[in-house]
Design a protein around this nucleic acid. Sequence first.
RNA 1: GGCGCGUUGGUCAAGGGGUUAAGACGCCUCCCUUUCACGGAGGAAUCACGGGUUCGAAUCCCGUACGUGCUACCA
Length: 509
Amino acid sequence: MFNKVRVRFAPSPTGGLHLGGVRTVLFNYLFAKKYGGDFIVRIEDTDQARFVAGAEKYIFNCLDWCGLVPDESVLHGGPYAPYRQSERKESYRQYAEQLVKDDNAYYAFDTPAELEAMREKLKAEGSNSLQYDHRIRMSMNNSLRLSPAETSALIESGTPYVIRIKVTPGEMLPFTDMIRGDMEFDTNNVDDKVLLKADGMPTYHLAVVVDDYLMKISHAFRGEEWLPSAPVHVLLWKYLFGLDEMPQWAHLPLILKPDGNGKLSKRDGDRLGFPVYAMDWADPITHDITKGFKELGFLPEAFLNLLAVLGWNDGTEQEIFSLDELVDKFSIERVHKGGAKFDFEKAKWFNHEWIKKLDVENYEQRVKEIFESNGITNIDDVYLHQVMGLIKERCTLLPDFYTQGLLFFQSPASYDEASVRPKWNDGKKEYFSDIIGQFENLATWEATVIEDTFKLLATQKNIKAGELQMILRVMLVGNKTGPAVFVIAETIGKTATIKRIENALAIFS
RNA sequence: GGCGCGUUGGUCAAGGGGUUAAGACGCCUCCCUUUCACGGAGGAAUCACGGGUUCGAAUCCCGUACGUGCUACCA
């Protein structure tokens, strides 16, 4: 066991960063910070066919937005560089060859067509296992069956080959998972996985084990989908470095689709109208953009919060947690075993709560950008700040500040006449003509003063103040929504208030 | 098909032999406000099924069902 807690997040840059990925990073981060350990980000780019240019940079952008800063990574440096697997290629081969030497692995020359034929044959025979394993390896084209001379002849002639692990059947492999407790795997069901590919790149199986050892990883968190291949990793540790050095594992539950069945995927987001990626992901080839939580108007605090409580809770009724609180309260034992369906409605609720909780200073720059992208420029920062304070409790997503706040920047484009017409008459018309004059004469323009003036005239004219108030609201806002009407009047100012009443009067009369 | 993992309201979930089975989201009603929202008070809705073990099971055991994952020279 290593002395210091060292955890790692190891994404493969093949596209956007989805919810499950961010949650894995988050749990890694919380665990590392809780125990004063190191949080390492290593890039798993051994699959050149699926590697996507720009994806690595994108991943770091997402981490940056979330505030999950690595202690060691490609970007941040560290004592165990390089942190990109493609740059560690040679060291993997060395370990693979060592395994062969120790008779724990072997060379295999089977072509893809031969492998396919093998599976077809097994299927035809009604076998319930289509794996390349102890049952069939002696009938395949590998160094186990071939003589040493035949093997070296093939290698020297440049025949492509892979290195496969040699799994000894009939063994029970014990294994402890931090979330699931003690488990056991029967090696009879474990196949001879490829460790080193024909192109010289390692597969994930070899690379994680070697890197975890070399980078002194003490705890490893990954998705539940890795559970079936855990015995391969345990075996590799046993063969290469000894089980005592193996990190402790935690297999995280999956995040599932809200409807139907299955793991949440990018397609579900498109189909159901919510994001599954942390930030906008632009496909470099098709240029399709997949929406991200950030761009949709989520706060990073809310995003992290909702992810943390998907599959974990601290046992109390608390649901809103800051990152610091999470570091303090996180415990791996309280992570669930079962997958959780993602609920976008609840996700929005978290954002709403965080918008209310945080001072607007934390996000006013982003809101300003939203206004500007909608053509509202020359915004006064102090005024925007004031407006945001007035409407924050009715905003769920950041763009709501635009829809809710536009009335403070522009006169209504249209009016809810259906609400006004039934109440409209000459008395009301006269009232509003008169109120303009009274407003003009007010020395102080404050909500309470405006309200008093407004109600006094109503009493004098013997008109119900409530009805007038509704009409005033439609005059100023265009519809029956928004904060307290006299506060709106105060905020937009005397001139604008009078102007808007005059505009509306012209239309209603 | 084989193997693994899981299963408390629609969703997230607490609870790990004796509880009126918490709480949250969403939904509904009411109050506040002559608006919407916030806030407050209520409501409907749950232990997958079948067997055990036990005085007693949502909790322990077995089976079944269902869900989900893996079964690539992908991670």
